[in-house]
Design a protein around this nucleic acid. Sequence first.
DNA 1: TCACTGTAATTTTTT
DNA 2: ATTACAGTGA
Length: 710
Amino acid sequence: MDVSHLINALNPAQRAAVTADKPHTLVLAGAGSGKTRVLVHRIAWLLLTGQSHPHQILAVTFTNKAAKEMQARLVTLLAQPTQGLWVGTFHGIAHRLLRMHWREANLPQNFQILDNDDQLRALKRVIQSLQLDEKKWTPKQVQSFVNKCKDQGSRAQNLQPESRDMWLRQMQSIYHTYEEYCQRTGVIDFAEILLKAYELIRDNQELQAHYQQRFTDILVDEFQDTNSIQYQWLCLLAGKHGRLFVVGDDDQSIYSWRGAQIENLQNFPRDFPDNQVVKLEQNYRSTGNILAVANALIAHNKTRLGKELWTDGADGEPVFVYKAYDEHNEARFVAEKIQAWDGNLQEVAILYRTSAQSRVFEDALMTRQLPYRIYGGLRFYERAEVKDVLAYLRLIIHHHDDSAFERIINTPARGIGEKTVESIRAAARAKGLSLWQASEYLLNSQGFTKRSGTAVFAFQQLILEFAEQFQNLALHAQIDAIIKNSGLCEVYLKEGKEESQRRFENLDELSIAAQEFEASAKDGNDPVTTFLAHAALEAGEGQSKSVENCVQLMTLHLAKGLEFNQVFLCGLEEGLFPHENSLKEGSLEEERRLCYVGITRARQSLYLCHSESRYRYGQRDFSNMSRFIQEVPAELLEEIRLRSSYHNAFGNSTIPACTVYNVGDEVKHQVFGQGVVLEYEGQGDYMRVHVLFSEGKRWLIAGLAGLERV
DNA sequence: TCACTGTAATTTTTT
DNA sequence: ATTACAGTGA
């Protein structure tokens, strides 16, 4: 078949990647170099040249968004639906395998997924059941331990602590008890999805042979983000004869803190001998000036495979650096630039290192009536009220789901206090029962006080009635019934707070989401289970209604994969970015990559902002310009200077700058009164002066804060 | 069960 | 400064 139309649209490097004929291909795809395009064209090429059938191809991504985009672009390119072709996230594909082969994976058919929050609660219970001190064995710490183990493929029984290593031995025992808890109550957490799917293929020879034979081509996006278990799972699925086509960028690896191993990419050529490496360095996104800055910065990293972006396009406007004197000034500068921006607001992004920085930008944009949207925060299916309703659904279909039981036994409050719940837990522990069974047992053996017995009985009746009533009810009708009859809705209506109103609306939205889910549901799987899995694996968007055409605010991590015409990279200060914690942990190179990611988001216009001071932890903090700005040759940057006099925080008086203050100088401040200079830093416009006033010491910025020499 | 109080921590986040 | 959370007392 003639595939020239497919190939001709590509540049030489892209073409080499798409038509690579070695069994294993590594595509080093720089930012904005057409990585998704290459993946999609590769699949199309495999199909159109007859090398593969759709059902022989597996394409894996990290996020649902990336998976959806790939799927959509594939359909467009092929001009037909892609039946039998598997495109999905690691978790999505692994979950699919586990649902198909639940028996072989030793899972109950209706197993449920624990999200991070559920997992944390479960671990907390486990720690308590082992009678451990929660201060010493904090659930958070245990959670990260367990997930790290699972990411590396270790079960509790595989750990081999030295006999003296009490810490590890204790962790092992918690991990082990948690494994039993999950097994007993039929739930799996996110890391477990991957681990179980890996073990399934590893230990079941029949399935292994089947899938190795089936998937002749495996394609992986964002390969630099794979962790150990994902890597092993890929190797296993590919087997001896499967072709691996992986795309990634070592310079954009920013998730090592959640287990990503950049080494997987760096070692690929060594691990898969018969391979081909293709570099995509031509950038179709940014101006020459922006790329020059990006290249100069990332060149400071030692451990990289090496790559330099270039463009056919124009140099564009210079990359600007703005020095603010505090975070409000930084925000004001950004907001004013955005006001003057001639274009769509959704093409403008404000990027920062920590979410706490967003507040000030919000204020500045709001006062100027510029619409904005902040990304991040709680997503729809993670909201407490939504999870409460889902927990009802879970408990109704599977009474032994202790996580769900704990969550709703007293939600809404029905007079079952901590003491009663603890007695149920104790009975469950003693008899090896689920909380549901333990409640029944205590009811039968008069184990409750009269009052709590009545309450627990009523709760069980409620769940049983739901179960009865739901036999032939559609999913959304079940959800409506839970909202109405569980008492959840009344509580919110009664409270009458603004918060409760929002929660109430979210429950309404849940019902609508369920209806939509049913309408688009495929195959004959149980809709309730499928919906619950959907809720866990695709937590949805943060905000229900997206405002049209608004400025985009997000952390640098969230910005990966996106692009904007105008980008403000803010808070470029030592200690904030690079973050002080990363300096301690020795992950400076990853911080630099994060900065590189931020820079390469910009198409036309890029501002690097930093502030001389900002409030951090309730204190005004002074810090130096980030080394990331200093690492870029000055000739690539253009500094935007403040006028030498301007309005200050205390009014509209114009203050002369460039006064020099010395230790011991008597000074006067328009608010704090008379004082003496204790020490100072810097010179000229931005001199920081530490002054002793009668009411205490204060750091001020000379010339800006209403300070005068007496 | 709720309200108050003291203490400690406070990067990044998908599935 | 802000917040979250455990502990205490009514």
